[in-house]
Design a protein around this nucleic acid. Structure first.
Lengths: 180, 180
DNA sequence: TAAGATTGAGGTATCAATCTTG
DNA sequence: CAAGATTGATACCTCAATCTTA
């Protein structure tokens, strides 16, 4: 503890606690087990687990953070192999300032490069370097295998299909919710 | 750009780009649209969107970050209304050092308090204060309404059920994947 | 004026090292 | 020595302000 007062000492079982019997409790004691809250919690936990495991594996096998891999995938998917800083930021939910430094780090690592845009001199393109393409190819193999192990393996074919359907509905046709 | 060389100027459409025709391309050009990768991407995007929207709404209406709310929910759910620092960190996927400062901030805001553990003097309990309980109750109402709007509304009843089933399988009986 | 990108300031996480207790 | 919590160093993000160009 940095600067707060020392914690009060309590015996192990001497506190009268509000027992969570659903009928007589305060609102929060009922709602903490609300089905909707549990669903949101599952989504958060699943995301935390998967990004942690897949990120660790990717870092160990290819030496690349998961965020970098995601950037490379979005560049590789793009129409002409490049995106502006703004487009990239919108696609991966990172603010303008965050993208500037993220691309800085990846540029220093030799994975991407900036290219000026002739038709709009405010914009800057980002594109994969040859080294970036090679790294993406290696990372892709590891990552797909990781998804098989950690995301697909625990699910049946039906689970996978309906999960994809539900998540697609959560992302399609929603307000952009711009990060920056 | 901080210290890298100036970006090369290119005309708008004069770069010979590897067109993504699936048969003749490099491996990464095929795999970036792999179904498994798209599924993982959907999970990441859904999580980013929902935590951003719900976090913004919670911050605006109650003045509490989403992380604090999650901490309060886990404390309210716990057996005796308290968890050790370690238990809390494991439940919400935050490292030991991260939990120390997170609880510091929430203590300073008056929402939680530390309590020494008589039976194991290494451990420290965290529990909601009365103010924390009141804040949780207000935040809960806002948050459940937000979940209704942003997570449940776009889904059918079947979608919701199968989403819960799939996510539960991703979290139950998996390796703990400790953060710290 | 607005849009795109960058910068500086500040917040919060991780990691590794340390201290206390079992 | 191992486990629990804290601290210092560091990484990376957001926000607000600024600069350049449309």
């Amino acid at each position: 503890m940095s600067d707060s007062a020392a914690p009060a000492v309590v015996e192990d079982a001497d506190r009268d606690v509000e027992v969570p019997s659903p009928e007589t409790c305060t609102a929060w004691a009922r709602d903490v087990n609300d089905e909707r809250l549990l669903l949101m919690g599952l989504l958060i936990e699943s995301h935390a687990r998967l990004t942690r495991v897949l990120g660790n594996e990717l870092e160990a096998s290819v030496g690349v953070p998961l965020t970098w891999f995601i950037v490379m995938v979005h560049l590789a998917r793009s129409e002409r192999g490049r995106l502006t800083m703004s487009q990239l930021g919108t696609e991966i939910s990172v603010t303008s300032g965050g993208i500037t430094r993220l691309v800085d780090r990846m540029t220093e690592a030799g994975l991407v490069e900036r290219e000026s845009c002739a038709s709009d001199r405010r914009a800057i393109y980002v594109a994969l370097t040859p080294q970036g393409e090679a790294t993406l190819e290696r990372a892709m193999a590891e990552h797909l295998a990781g998804i098989d192990r950690h995301l697909l393996a625990p699910l049946t074919e039906d689970d996978r299909a309906s999960l994809a359907i539900a998540l697609r509905k959560l992302n399609d046709g929603q307000d952009p919710v711009c990060p920056g």
